[in-house]
Design a protein around this nucleic acid. Sequence first.
DNA 1: GTTAGCACTCTTACAAAAAGAGTGCTAACG
DNA 2: CGTTAGCACTCTTTTTGTAAGAGTGCTAAC
Lengths: 341, 341
Amino acid sequence: MELSPRKEKILAAVVENYIRTGEPVGSKSIMALLSVSSATIRNEMAELSALGLLEQPHTSAGRIPTNEGYRYYVDNLMGVRHLDESVKHRIEAGVSVKNASPETILAKASEFLADLTECAAVSTTPSGENATVKRVEFVPVGTRTGMIILLTSTGMIKSKVYRSDYDLTASVIEKFYNIVKTTFIGMPLDDIDMATLQTLVASMGSDALMMIPFVSTLSELAQDAMKTMIMLGGQSNILRYSSDYGSTAYELMDFLRRGEPISRMLSESKDDIDVTIGGENKFKQLENSSVITAHYTIDGDKRGSIGIIGPTRIDYASLIPSVRYLTDLVGNLLTQTLKED
Amino acid sequence: MELSPRKEKILAAVVENYIRTGEPVGSKSIMALLSVSSATIRNEMAELSALGLLEQPHTSAGRIPTNEGYRYYVDNLMGVRHLDESVKHRIEAGVSVKNASPETILAKASEFLADLTECAAVSTTPSGENATVKRVEFVPVGTRTGMIILLTSTGMIKSKVYRSDYDLTASVIEKFYNIVKTTFIGMPLDDIDMATLQTLVASMGSDALMMIPFVSTLSELAQDAMKTMIMLGGQSNILRYSSDYGSTAYELMDFLRRGEPISRMLSESKDDIDVTIGGENKFKQLENSSVITAHYTIDGDKRGSIGIIGPTRIDYASLIPSVRYLTDLVGNLLTQTLKED
DNA sequence: GTTAGCACTCTTACAAAAAGAGTGCTAACG
DNA sequence: CGTTAGCACTCTTTTTGTAAGAGTGCTAAC
C-alpha cells in the first residue's frame, strides 16, 4: 500500500495524537499541521478509513488508528528517533549489575525496563539448546549432602544441592566422576533424556541403585540449563493502565503469568526487533496489546529476547529504540558474564 | 467489649452474608436466623452501629461490617472450622515439591496458595539471622572461573560464580582456604560486615590485592544467606477482584511489588497466626485489605512467614485454617530439606 | 422487650431533553 | 479538479426529572 504524502502526514498525526491523548482525533485538531481546511482533512480521513487504516468508534467521533494503521505508521512513518543521551544514561545505569548470574541480570533488566516504559516487561534467559556438557563437579558439603555443579559449553553454570540416603564415601564419588567422564562430558544437553539415562543405568550393574539419584539430578541440571526461564516484571503497570487494555486486562495478566505461551511467542520472532500490534499475533489475550521485542546476542548468537507488552496505543517511536538499546547492553553484559577464561 | 448472644448472632450473620454476597445486609435477610421481627433486628443493628461494629454506606442501605466488626468476628465469633479432607489433600499435593531449594519451595507455595485462595500470596525465605559459617568450598570450573559455596549452620547452601582477573593457581586457592579456615568458619553471618573485612584485608599484606575479590564475594554470599527474600504470587488475583479493593488496587499491587515493606510487616507479627484487618496496619496501601499470615518453623524455630493478602471481606473462617495448614506443611518440608546429616 | 406500621431517605433505573463534537455531503470557488 | 464553507445529521455525553425499590428510624401499641 502506497499513500500520498498528505495522507501519510494525516495518518501520522492521528496516530501520534491518539497515542498522546487516548481520545479519538478529529479533523479540526490537525488543521494546524497541514494548513488545509478541516473539510479537506475529512475527505482524506474518509479515504484512510476506506483503506482500513483508521476507524471511528461511532459515526460522530474522531478517528483512531486500526491495527493496520499502527502497522503502516510503524513501518513507514515513524521517525527513527535517536535516543536522548539522558535516556541512554538511565538505561546504562539500570542494567549495570555487577557480578550476577544471567538470571539475575535478566530479572533486573525486566524490572527496570518495566519501570522505564511503564509497561509489563519480559525477558527469556539464554537458551542452552546447542550446548554440551563441559564439566561436572561434585562438592561434598556434609556426609550425605553435596552440590553438583554443571558447566556447559556456553558458559552457563548450574548447580543443585544433592541429598543422598547413603553416606557419600570417596569411592561413591569416584564412581560418579567415572560415569561423568565416560558418558556425560561432551554430551549435548538435549541428549540427556530418559532413554539415555535408562541405557546408562542398565549398564551400571550393581552400582545402579546408588548412582541413579546422581544421574537423575544431573539430568535435572541439564534440563535447567536448557530450559529458558521467563522473567516477568511490571505487572502492576497493567493494572495501572488497565483501562487501555479494555476488559482483557485480567486475561492479559493471567496470560503473562502462565509464561509458556509468551515464551513461545518470543522465540518465534525472527527479526532483530519485532513489533506485534494487537490481533496480529494469534493469542486473543493480546488483542488489545502490542508487543515490542528484541533479541539479545551472546558472542554474536541470538540466545534470548527482551520485550515489553503494552496497550496498542503505545509510544512506538520512543520505546522501540529504548528496547533495542537496552537489549544490546544486556547482550554485551551477558557475553561478558559468560565469557570463559 | 462484650455483646449479648443475640447481638453476636446478628453480627456474625451480617459478616458472613456480606462476605458471601458483597452486598450490604438488610434486617429482613437475617430474620430467618433469629426468629424475631426485622424491627427488632434493626434496633440491635442500630446499637451495633453505635458501637462501631457495623456501618451503613448510606442512610437507606443495609449494614456492612467495620474493621472493628470483622475483628470482633474473627476473635470471638468465627467457628474454628476444620479443614475439609479434600482441601487438605489439595494443599498436600500443592506443596509436595521434590528435591528443591528453599527458595523454590516457597515460590511454589506462594503460587499455589494464591491459586487456592484467589488472593495474592507472599512468603519469606528463611531468615539466616543467627546462622554462622559452617563451611566454605571453592570449586574451580575454569582457569579464571570458579564457584564459591557457603554452607551455614542452619543448613542453607548458597553459591556464587566467581570470576577473577588472574589465573586461579593452586597456591591462590590454598591461600583462600587458609583465610576461610582461620577467619570465617564459625563466624556469625551478620558479623561479616565492612569493618571486619577491612581489618582482615589489612592483615593480609601483599596478598591483599588477590584476596579482596574472594572475601568480598564471600561476604556477598553471607549477605544473600542472611537476607530473606520475598516470594510473591497471584498478583493477577488483585486485578481480577480489583473492585473489592476500591481505588487502591494499583497502590496495593505496587506496594507488594516493592517487597521491602511487606517483608517488614510479616517479620513484625508475633502470633502463631496473624490476621490484620484493613487499616489496622500502618500502611495506607492496605487500607482495604486484610492480611492473614502464619509463621513456619524449621526444627521448631520461627524462621519465616507465609501469608495472603485479600480484600477485607475475605472468607476468614475457611482461609485462616488453610493458611495455617499449608504453612505447617511447608515448615516440615523445609525442616526436612535443611536437615543436615 | 417486641412488633407492626409508616414516613423518610437515599440509590438506582429509566426516559427525555439539551449540549457538544465531528462527520458526510453539497454546492460554490479558484 | 482539488479545495473549501456551510449545514444537516448522527451519535455521545450530560443533565434533569420521575418512578420504583430497598431499608431504615421512629412511634405507638402489644
